[in-house]
Amino acid sequence: MTRDMIDWTMQARVEAFLYEYAASLDEERFDDWITLFDAAGCTYEVLSRENRDLGLPAPIMGCYSYGMVCDRVAMLVKGVLTYRHNHLLRQVGNVRVRGDAGNAGAELSVRAGLVVYQSDEEGVSSLYMVARYEAQLTDIGGSFLIRRMAVAVDSFGIDTMLAVPL
């Protein structure tokens, strides 16, 4: 795609959507995060580069229905899981959008880079995750709904654990 072909309005809308996606997780507004997914049917997966390159199907985290996406964060909110509670900062960049612009119901294919930093309670920060978002979005006019979100992780040697979705 050349610069001339970019639909800048669509680009800005998708970027704003991804920023809200990242911020809702950073700020632990999990109820807001799940509203970004299509309740009629969606998937969310975290995939390692290693398995992808080998053509192996197992995800690190795999939710194959809207209910499963809700469950992933419900287990955090309800205190079921004992996990390292770091502050996370997601940086989304190099956002690329493909698909029909502007038509309600249009399907968009979105890719973006993701870097996540973690900071502990004593203010020590480190790099937690290097990954890419690969999303299928439905344009619903004012916003989008996620039909499919795959987070492809380069840093698949995961530091301690992955409790909070990326």
Partner: peptide, 23 residues
């Protein structure tokens, strides 16, 4: 098995807690 993998590993509903316990 692609569903039950959610029990184990770094994001496993069960196993992720062992990583935290060791830490």
């Amino acid at each position: 098995k692609l569903l039950t993998v959610n029990f184990i590993g770094p994001a496993g509903y069960i196993s992720l807690e062992d990583g935290e316990a060791l830490r």
